[in-house]
Amino acid sequence: MGLVAWIAAYAALEPFADTALALCGLTRQTRLGEAVHFFIYDTPKVLLLLTGIVFVMGVIHTFIAPERTRALLSGRRLGIGNVMAATLGIITPFCSCSAVPLFIGFLSAGVPLGVTFSFLIAAPMVNEIALALLFGLFGWKVAALYLALGLAVAITAGLVIGRLGMEEHLEDWVRAMQGTQSAAFDPAKPCWDKRLASGLAHVESIVGKVWHYILLGIAVGAAIHGYVPEDFMASIMGKDAPWWSLPAAVAIGVPMYSNAAGIIPIVEALLGKGAALGTVLAFMMSVIALSLPEMIILRKVLKPRLIATFASVVAAGILLVGYVFNALL
């Protein structure tokens, strides 16, 4: 039932926007008309996509609790462990406020430090909200690239941190807990009614939290679409911008804190004004993956050198992704 309604609504988007525009007495040939069309077409489209994807993720979450992910990763070696950790990071329910308990929980069940970091980097950065919004606003190619590159950064950064053997830079009480718990996990098996209900609950909590960012983002996008000259940002953040524009974008993004939805208006604005895609995605990744508040929380379990290593390895990975991206496109 819900699925049919969803597909019907999605198919009706374009005609709906055209009709609504005609009712206002506007045509797409005018600037105002183009901006309004963009807004009334994109808003329901993005909200529909977000609702759909968040619902599916809510159902998937009922299969993958953090405890199950931990059991899957326990005792894995570097390499395959990092790939698994980054991938599981996408689908495991994760909230930045429980990043630290999760971190300790993984280590205490014998998940290697480098593998734990791969998870910790991928989980906030590559999430369903970021992917749904990128897909809705910029198309599936941008979303797929973000997914692939985000995973690559998380896997590589985790591998590097693991290779550096920095266990001694964990706080002593955390180190003492390494490998002390069993990762045994006895999953509760909810019935399908419960799973679908938790999908709906997920939609309610996520979409309820982020919809105003999305409206703002699309409004910004619509205004730019109609009015601002396309190459406004091209000289500073475009493809032919000086080499330092990418490091500068990442350096600005690292201390900033925002969730995927909050950053979308800025991404929309930058891209619309002619900034290069690699630079913008690198900026977005650095804002979501690294933040000052997160560092402060992590300080409770990591010594300063490990925090510094973590931040610089991830930032370097993001930079590399940005350069590769700009060079390829």
Binding site: P66, E67, R70, P93, C95, S98, V100, P101, L102, I104, G105, F106, S108, W173, M177, Q181, K300, V301
Partner: peptide, 11 residues
């Protein structure tokens, strides 16, 4: 944090 972790919860 130490007290929280002593209960073995991860989230």
């Amino acid at each position: 944090l130490k007290d929280i972790m002593s209960y073995g919860v991860m989230s």
